[in-house]
Structure formats: C-alpha cells, structure tokens
Design a protein around this nucleic acid. Structure first.
Lengths: 222, 222
DNA sequence: TAGATTGTTAATCGATTAACAATC
DNA sequence: TAGATTGTTAATCGATTAACAATC
C-alpha cells in the first residue's frame, strides 16, 4: 500500500484563500496571475505560493504566471468543490437560520436540504425554502435521504443528543457549533467549531498589539 | 530590548481546549488532574500537554498532577479571560443575533454592549437587552463608548464599509464573519472568520475517510 | 521504598524560506 | 537577448516527540 501524503491544515487553508482571492478579482482583471501577486495580496512568501500551487495545479508558465481560469478549476477540483454534498441542519434558531442563509456554502460544495428543531412552534414551517422537521425524525429522514453530513446549531446541553441522532441516521461527518467538544466513534469525523476559541485568538492578538508581555520574563515562570 | 516569545496559534488553541476540558468536568471530579488524563481526553501527547502547561502555570506536582483550581486560574489569566472587553456588533440579522445570543462569549472576556443595523425595521429595537442603532452612528458611538472591538455580521457587500466605519470610530480589532478578506491598516488587527474554509476542512477530512486519494499519484502531478 | 508523575534535554519531524537553475 | 517568472534543491526554523532524570 503506497503512502498517501496527508495534507496539512495550514496548507489547506492557504489553498482556499488562493481560490477565494482569485475568484474575487474584479471583472476585467487579466486572465493570468503570478505567484508574487498572490503572495503580496495575502501577505505570504511567493515561494510558498508556488510550492502550494505546484501540489494542485498543472503548473504556471515562466514570465506569465498562472492562467486564472485553469487555476480556479484545479483548485476547485482538488478542494472537492466541484461535487456538492447534501447536509441537514439540526437547530433552527438564530444560528441555524444564519447558517442556512449563508449563501456561500454551495460554493464550497455543501447543500443544506432539511432542518430539524425541537420547538413545536417552528416544526412544520419552512425557512428559505427548507422544511423544518421535528428532531425525533432525524435518524429516519437522514437514512432515507442518504445524508452523510449534519450541522449542529443547538444549545450545548442538547448537542450530544443531536449528534447521537445524526450518527444513528448514518451521518458520518458532524459540524458542531455548540460550545462542547463532541466525540464521535472512529469512522465518523467531527469538527468542533469553537467560536470562543476563535474570539479568544482575536483578543490575544489585540492584546499583544496593545501591551506586549513584559520582556525578559517568559510568562508563568516562577 | 529583550525578545518576547511569540505564541503560536496551535499552542493557543490547545491552551483553550485544556481550559474548556477542565472547566467542563462534572462536579465531584477530583480536584487534581494529570497531564496524561488531559492528553488522553483530547487525543494529544502527554509530554506536549506538560510542556504547554509549563509555559502558563506555576507547575504541577509529581504523583499528583495539576490542581485544577490553580490551573484554571493560571490559564484564564494567561489567556486574558479575567478582564472583559466591550464590543459592538454590526449587523443584527440572523448571524448577528446568533452571536449576541451566544451566551459563552463573556467567558472568553468579551461583552457585546451595542448593535448596529441598516434596516429601519430593527433600528430602535432591542435584542436580548442590547440596543440596535442605525449604522451611521457607528463612528460616533464607538468613540464615545471607547469601544475597541467590532464584530461584523453583515453581507459581504457591506463588510468593507462596516469595517471602515468601525475603524473611524477608533476600533482596533475587527472580527469579520462576512465572506471577504478584510484588510486593516497596521496597528489594527482583523480576524476573518471564514466559515466556508471551516466547512471545506470538514468536507476534506470526510472525503479522505471515504475514498483516500489514489496511491502512488501525488495529486495534480502530470 | 516503589511507583506515579513532572519537567528538561536531545532527537526527530515537518514546514517555511533562501538560493538558484530552468524556461518562456 | 534580457527580464520575469516558475520550480527545485538545500538550509533553516520551529514544533513535536522520545528518553530520562528529578521529585513527591
């Protein structure tokens, strides 16, 4: 069995940022782009950009750079945005609705096709054309619709339960927005989207800009 | 001028996960915890946990481990959760309201004290006790309230404008949820919360579990 | 004491960057 | 041709892990 090079998270994020940058260029931009321009726009090293792109694309041309059309196609293919998967949303509160509204997900290959909630007030209604079902029906509907991806946007206390129902319905990838670390049995994957951690990181970089830690004393050293 | 050791994002995230893990232990748990237990719970290496903790805490005791109470205090202090900053939310749609509702932010040292929106239908109302003002008033109010942190939860097309208004009001840290890469002039900091990238990462790991890339052919190689 | 556990030093691993040859 | 730009090889840097001594 040959080794498969695992791709690092950092690399993956960079690839996504390249794709977004190129796609967002205003109409009328040249149809080629150099690694130096990409690097400049994203604050990266140009050699790194070339190296990253070498791993996904069929290559650029000296003196010209990369053909944007081809590069977009290569990136989208590598990132798997060219075949859409269907997902369900558990929780139709503000967060659930915000995520359903997030027009962008289909660009990343995800289509939300149903939502679930416990609140009898919303069960049976629709939001942005998506039916909201009772949470009890998660296992049954996921199985019948052959859904493999579930998004959890419920309070922390109900998250584990929601997760269990999804797994019971055959879901193998869970995207969790509740502030708990969910664990799933091995073949399945979970991504805990820790908003708190994301926030904390911003606060940290802010604080470091404002008052850098006092020099000479590594923090916490006695 | 002494060197200040910059702290890596990965380390920072791990520290946050330690804190959350320890805080979430059920009442009645022992008041000490070993690096091995932490490592096991989070799927990390125990040496790494000890090394991480050594950089923030006053240390554990052989045969006992770390005193959870002290460790929580040390982590919270290091992570800066012990003094709260005030922030404003720009955009009071589903996402803005979801973030305002996210009970957890105060635990991370952030308090949202005002919101702004362009929709005359919501301007003048309150949500969860937070007043919603007209977006025009961002610079003025931020300045008068001495706000340094702004959260952007508006559509992509309005994000740059929202950002400019915040900076004009003296905001120095911007947390952006719109799917655009905002740039801010140097002393300020921005964190672009790219939901699409987060999603894509989940999809990627799912795909790799389902059908690993064909062996022997590194992707994109001609 | 013996065993559990910490903290440190050295080795390994992987990712980034620098230098430069190749090419259009 | 000269200059811009790619892609690769080697060097550097930083982070993780292994080995082990110290300590309660």
């Amino acid at each position: 069995m040959a080794e498969v090079k695992p791709i690092s998270i950092m690399l993956y994020k960079r690839l996504l940022s390249y794709l977004r940058l190129i796609k967002q260029r205003p109409p009328g931009s040249p149809d080629n782009i150099s690694s130096a321009v990409i690097a400049q726009a994203l604050g990266l090293n140009d050699v790194q950009v070339r190296k990253d792109l070498a791993s996904v694309s069929s290559g650029g041309k000296p003196k010209i750079g990369y053909i944007t059309k081809d590069l977009i196609a290569d990136l989208e293919h590598f990132l798997g945005h060219d075949n859409c998967s269907e997902a369900v949303m558990v929780g139709a509160g503000n967060l659930g609705r915000a995520l359903i509204s997030y027009e962008n997900f289909e660009n990343y290959g995800l289509k939300i096709i149903a939502a679930f909630d416990n609140d009898p007030g919303v069960v049976g209604t629709t939001f942005k054309g998506i039916d909201i079902f009772s949470a009890e029906r998660i296992p049954d509907l996921c199985r019948r619709l052959k859904i493999h991806i579930g998004i959890i946007a419920v309070p922390a206390a109900s998250a584990q339960e929601a997760c269990d129902l999804l797994l019971e319905g055959g879901v193998v990838a869970v995207w969790n927005f509740a502030p708990v670390n969910l664990k799933v049995p091995d073949p399945a994957v979970v991504r805990n989207e820790d908003m708190g951690a994301a926030l904390a990181l911003l606060m940290k970089s802010l604080k470091e800009k404002m008052d850098p830690p006092e020099p000479g004393h590594p923090p916490g050293r006695r």
